[in-house]
Amino acid sequence: MTTLTLTPRVSPAAGLRHTLTLAWRTLVQIKHNPAELLDFSIQPIMFLLLFTYVFGNAIMGSTGDYLTFALPGIIVQNALFATMNTGVGLSTDLEKGVFDRLRSLPIARTAPLAGRIIADVVKQSWAVALLLGGGWVLGFRIGTDPLSVLGGFLLLLVFALAVSWISVLIGMLAANPEKVQIFGFTVLFPITFTGNVFVPVSKMPGWLQAWAKVNPVSIIADALRGLWVTGAEARPIVYALLWAAGLTAVFATLAVRAFKRRT
């Protein structure tokens, strides 16, 4: 009769080391497959150019005024769309049996999940910096101080991290990466475009304005406009943090449970 030897519980320090190692694994893959960075590079700049020069004059009367209004919203939109890469990547790893191989190693069970999320947050940081740089070239100027800019940067990453748990949950429940992407964009497109990302709330139909004002996408976009352009306002910042905390509390719990069942 075979005797099974239980693997000792992994310490928090070792679990953190495993997580960072797997996060680095995900980032290093970009070196061998640069196409993975396209969603975080070409797509953001494409949205920035299209919305600024196609809709700028029609909505605001000038591309400069529109860029000042829209760039924080475009950054939010890009960050939310990019969270789908987390779910797609996890689903791809599951489909290819990566987690089966990792499960046989003496590592923290949640390290592959946490590593993927951390790597995608780093990619998000790159996309935000790229959009701010592109906006500056087109004429966008920061109207606040460096501390507010950093605060907006961190607030966006916290909010994107909270939304990424929804992507993780979808990745665990969907049958394949394609379904993750389809379901994710089906949810994110209407939520994003019914916020004040591209159009001020005052220019929307009356029945839509009520939703746009409470839409979490509008709230985080207003928070960034305050931190980067007009001066920080406590209300949207606090509401954005509350939304992030609520989304994390609900979807992180569900996603971790689904991850443990799936792996």
Rank of each mutant, 00 (worst) to 15 (best):
A14R: 10
A108T: 12
G61L: 08
P146I: 02
L156V: 06
P190D: 09
W24H: 07
W165T: 08
T3N: 10
F198R: 02
D100A: 07
H32R: 11
F159H: 04
I45K: 06
R17H: 14
F185S: 10
V98A: 05
G56M: 05
A258S: 14
R116Q: 15
M204E: 06
A245V: 14
V168A: 10
L4K: 06
T3Y: 13
A160H: 05
V88I: 11
T92F: 00
D39T: 08
A252Y: 14
R17D: 11
Y239M: 15
R9V: 13
W24M: 04
K203F: 14
G231R: 15
S218I: 01
T83P: 11
V149G: 04
A160D: 05
L227M: 15
D65R: 14
A223Y: 07
P146H: 00
G135D: 04
L156G: 01
S62K: 13
S125V: 10
L4M: 08
L105C: 05
T263W: 00
I30V: 15
S148T: 01
M172H: 09
S164Q: 11
V137Y: 01
S202I: 10
L154I: 11
L48T: 07
I166T: 01
P44E: 06
F193K: 08
A255L: 10
L130R: 06
W165K: 06
I75Y: 02
K31V: 11
L130P: 08
G64R: 09
G184F: 05
A234E: 15
P177S: 09
L169K: 09
V168I: 15
L130E: 05
I170F: 05
G195M: 07
T83H: 09
V187P: 00
V149R: 00
N85C: 04
L113H: 09
G206I: 03
V197H: 05
P146E: 00
L161A: 12
